[in-house]
Design a protein around this nucleic acid. Sequence first.
DNA 1: GCGAGATACCGAAGCGCTTTGGAAGCTCCA
DNA 2: TGGAGCTTCCAAAGCGCTTCGGTATCTCGC
Lengths: 344, 344
Amino acid sequence: MNLKQLAAHLNLSQTTVSRALNGYPEVNEQTRKRVMEAAQTLNYAPNARAKGLATGRAMAIGHVIPMSTHHQMMNPVFGDFIAGASDEYVKAGYDMTLSMTGDRDEEENYRRLKAKGNVDGIIVHGPSMKDARIPFLRQLGLPFVVHGRASELDLPYSWVDMNNTHAFQRATDFLLDLGHRRIALINGLEFMDFAYRRRVGFEQAMSARGVAVDPRYLTAGEMTESYGFESAARMLALPDRPTALITSSVIAAIGIRRAIHAAGLEMGRDVSVITHDDDLSFLRNGPDVPIFTATRSSVYEAGRIAASMLLAHIADPDLPAQPRLLEAQLIIGGSTGPAPQDAR
Amino acid sequence: MNLKQLAAHLNLSQTTVSRALNGYPEVNEQTRKRVMEAAQTLNYAPNARAKGLATGRAMAIGHVIPMSTHHQMMNPVFGDFIAGASDEYVKAGYDMTLSMTGDRDEEENYRRLKAKGNVDGIIVHGPSMKDARIPFLRQLGLPFVVHGRASELDLPYSWVDMNNTHAFQRATDFLLDLGHRRIALINGLEFMDFAYRRRVGFEQAMSARGVAVDPRYLTAGEMTESYGFESAARMLALPDRPTALITSSVIAAIGIRRAIHAAGLEMGRDVSVITHDDDLSFLRNGPDVPIFTATRSSVYEAGRIAASMLLAHIADPDLPAQPRLLEAQLIIGGSTGPAPQDAR
DNA sequence: GCGAGATACCGAAGCGCTTTGGAAGCTCCA
DNA sequence: TGGAGCTTCCAAAGCGCTTCGGTATCTCGC
């Protein structure tokens, strides 16, 4: 069932039927009603490709995941972000397309994406500190919003990011207030912007109190459970082991907890742990009493915000670039406590 | 840059340029080379919508996530499945579109999806035992492959599923062999087909040995960490607490481990745990020595298989429905041991 | 030396929609 | 009573591609 058939069935022209369906004013209300009803009962839905061809708009948003961050993609964080974004797209009648790209010819990929014309805008995931995609996309002229930022880039572009520096600064301060001095950071890969910023926040808080950062207490890696376990196990085996650990994800924190238990210690008493918590749907950090003390910021919410920003940019291409910084909450759970006396 | 411009630039007709690019034989190799090179340097990529209109194929696959299983979507399992599928799509030049649908008018949604014409086939996620989508999609005539099965449906359709029954039967047998008798099942929501089948496998193994299933040892819920924790905590507080627990996901197993520790017990000695392990990228169950004894089956692999099956169905619509059953491995980790003497 | 068969190209229709540029019919007031 | 101004509809062009149905040129065997 296409427009032509529908029009024939109604004894109307395609023009009128099209206008009736798209809410144009120059059509009699009675006729419109008749058209609407026929479309409903005959199960008519306009062909999106034809519509796109004619209007020049695809009514779809692309999410591009570079293969190098393949894990990032499969990363649970991605799922919640997408869910948030998707909720906005549905409301606006947009579709969502996912594409993975190889790292080489990444530019080529975006160019194709634009030429192919099946997206009106894209969301950039997992920016590195000096992400080359950003200047490229700017000059390509395809609307985009970045989830995160590129610290070393000084260009106007739209992004939504959590205040990573501030969050980790607060977390570190909180531990310092509890008397901790030997504090470790089990961070994400530091070419990723968020991880870099988190380290900066950590270091700023430490140096503000005149506490030296021991390089043995710093690691950077992919945020898996076993990475958390191994990093923590190694550090806890040191003669002067850290009394507190800060980490970047609940998943890693779970590995850290396992390492603490394996070392015969108790979390929150012998060793304090603070994690960042993306408030993932399937990994709630304790519904009522949080298991982990954490800096919390919903990545689902970030997805919603990024999506609606992008839709706004598509609706009005002249809209100026818009940054959006989200503050994380610091929530107190059972994984932190005062530094053990003998360690002070 | 479109075909017309490219053709003009080359002093050729659109026809010839199109044929050169699409590998048709009736074009001189020299010309083809010239065309290819021009397309490359001029950055030409055919408009996907126009191509789709002309060919009737969208070169895209839809993944539809019903909102009721919203969590299922945000579920990390989904991410790995998608990653596997995506790898196949990239190879075949297909795109992937994600859509969430409300539960009501679900049929309406699929119908629109077809009418809109921006997918050539779809993957159905998270089937329930008598999933209404399956008969509907069959009569709709849009190729589809189901990830999982609908036990109560006796229709031919293509699916790829793990042998849930057998896996959980083996897991249960393994525990019975170790002398366990009080075995608990912390299962997923049982209107989901996979969860139902797992319970069946569990019960079959138990009754085959003449061991009664204690209803207090059975729960069904959404597979979160806290669900695992709470279920296990409740059961371990019983005077005749179970000596072994079987669960459906590593995430829940992590909660179970926490509950075991909280009860002052040790996993693998006082209480044995077997989990199903989807071999998620970010949650490897111990790279070398598995933490949990587990039934393991890669959901990434399932994604790849489902995708290539669907592509085959699209290429040849007359292909008969094809079932694909994957067997899980039973891998032994540190979370299981003989039943405590006093419990035998 | 000529028709058959390759080879290499082209024109134009058509995919299903939107939208421009009318046109017919009506109302209504000068 | 006639035309200005609405209201309501329509024909046809065009979005960028594929593909059907040709056509012109060349090769070659008889």
